[in-house]
Nucleic acid binder design. Structure first.
Ligand SMILES: [Zn+2]
Length: 493
DNA sequence: CGCGTTTGACCGGCGC
DNA sequence: GCGCCGGTCAAACGCG
């Protein structure tokens, strides 16, 4: 839409669009050590510029070519010249096509890499968790842990289970994914051209909210049925701490909604008080009873920033990309959590560490202990977000090495779960802290991770990047949303 | 005609 | 108790 202030400031207008994207890529690319990746990256960049970047890249290129041509035409009209240019064009087209195929191939590769990465991360998280369990804890904590462990055995607990699913599914669905997302209608592709995720934040909602943490099995009961009734009530009550995790993703996107691989149905829209932009409410429709909901809202200051907040856990398997994201996110979350909830000490440590590492990784994870529920924020880019800057003191940052490729949309599932599980122990692990931090740092510092992810992002964004939004996006895509905004504003409040 | 979105109404929580 | 507010419901609407 309107030029984003940020962008403009940061980049020169003309090439801005493409430059911007490339810039981000470059950031990682520099760290990039993956043998093929580096090369791949270069190619990818090209292809991205050529085909994907909807308006920006593509148009720009086209514009250039055409302009060249026109110039020639104007000055010398000889047919030869014309032919030449035409040929050139054809050649370019061929090239473009080639790039596309190449891109496709690369995407496959990346998928693979991603899966591997995912697996690795799962492993990592598992290890961490194990480590954690080893720690001495209070009786209560022990109890919880025990329970958790048991549940794991049963497969009852979602956290571990999800990971398993992730792994399996990731592998199993890989092909499906790349080929056809058989999902019917409104499945969001995981392509969202201009979406660059910048940060993820998770919020725990305390209180007896509805979703049982176990979520997996429990369908979300719509209607006004008191959530309390349906819900968890039982035991879970013990850990009244958090029933619900919130993951919010800050993404730069001009689209009305980021695509995350899930199907969403809009069920409401309202004006938030401090924000001129409306907030849209969506519900996951991938599965019948899926309790996951999300809110999409644009940042007041910078409207190019889209804030998507996910709540609840999916009661169904996630599409590969989403899963990858989820695991990734969850890993980060677990890292955060491991050191988070705890005292300020932990916070401080993390903070320091984060700052130290910051230069290496543009991504940040933040936890804020603000009011009702603490918020964890994973900052994936170093973008100077006003909101971020404004952030109150009670937060700390941790570098988050994994830029989600499309969106952590489904993060809540794994992510949330992880948070939930770990949050139980909150307060104890100061020592883990170190370990966690170390691990985090290690990962963050490891260019391979970043590279792989960047590659993934690039491929996904680039390959599929076309303007139209899929599924739900449509709904919101319609300008109507804006209109509604106005109306609903008044009405709503 | 089915389905998803739109949008005003409704509801529960919260602060005054 | 009242009003604000975030969130959800559901009838109406529009699209394919
Ligand atoms: Zn779902």
């Amino acid at each position: 839409m309107d030029p984003t202030c940020d962008r403009i400031h940061q980049n020169p207008p003309p090439v801005s669009g493409e430059k911007r994207v490339v810039d981000e890529m470059d950031f990682f690319a520099e760290e990039n050590c993956l043998k093929k990746t580096s090369r791949v990256d270069a190619i990818k960049k090209e292809s991205t510029e050529l085909d994907s970047e909807l308006d920006t890249g593509l148009n720009l290129h086209m514009a250039n070519t055409s302009s060249d041509k026109s110039m020639v035409d104007d000055e010398t009209l000889p047919n030869m010249e014309k032919k030449r240019t035409t040929n050139k064009l054809i050649v370019l087209k061929d090239e473009l096509e080639r790039m596309n195929t190449e891109n496709q191939r690369l995407r496959d590769m990346l998928n693979e890499v991603n899966n591997k990465y995912c697996a690795l991360q799962m492993h990592f998280v598992t290890l961490m968790e194990r480590q954690q369990n080893r720690k001495p804890r209070t009786a209560e904590e022990n109890e919880m842990i025990d329970r958790t462990t048991e549940e794991k055995k049963d497969g009852g607990i979602v956290f571990p289970r999800q990971f398993l699913n992730l792994g399996q599914a990731a592998i199993a669905n890989k092909e499906e994914l790349s080929q056809s997302s058989s999902e019917g209608r409104t499945q969001n592709g995981f392509r969202s051209p201009q979406n660059n995720v910048e940060l993820v934040s998770v919020t725990f909602k305390s209180g007896q909210e509805a979703e049982s943490p176990d979520l997996a099995n429990q369908g979300w009961v719509p209607n006004k049925v008191p959530k309390f009734d349906t819900s968890k009530d039982y035991d879970q009550a013990t850990d009244a701490t958090m029933r619900k995790a919130r993951v919010s993703v800050r993404a730069r996107s001009e689209a009305t909604m980021i695509s995350d691989g899930c199907q969403w149905r809009k069920y409401g829209q309202k004006m938030a008080k401090g924000n001129p932009c409306p907030r849209a409410y969506y519900r996951c429709t991938m599965a019948v009873g899926c309790p996951v909901r999300k809110q999409v809202q644009r940042c007041a200051e910078d409207r190019t920033i889209l804030i998507t907040t996910y709540e609840g856990y999916h009661n169904h398997p996630l599409p590969p990309p989403a899963m990858t994201m989820a695991s990734t996110t969850s890993a980060a979350a677990s890292m955060l959590l491991s050191g988070s909830m705890p005292s300020a000490d932990g916070l401080m440590n993390s903070n320091v560490l984060a700052r130290t590492i910051l230069p290496c990784s543009p991504n940040l994870a933040t936890i804020s202990a603000s009011a009702p529920f603490p918020t964890i924020t994973l900052d994936l880019t170093n973008t100077p977000n006003p909101s971020q800057l404004q952030r109150p003191q009670g937060q700390f940052h941790v570098p988050f090495p994994n830029p989600p490729h499309s969106f952590p949309s489904d993060g809540p599932q794994v992510f949330g779960q992880a948070l939930y599980n770990q949050s139980k122990f909150s307060g104890l692990q100061s020592s883990h802290q170190d370990m966690m931090n170390a691990a985090t740092a290690a990962i963050a510092a490891d260019p391979n991770f970043s590279a792989a992810l960047v590659a993934a992002i690039t491929s996904i964004i680039g390959a599929n990047g076309h303007p139209n939004n899929h599924g739900n996006n449509n709904s919101s895509t319609r300008s109507s949303s804006d209109n509604n905004v106005g109306k609903s504003n008044f009405v709503g409040n």
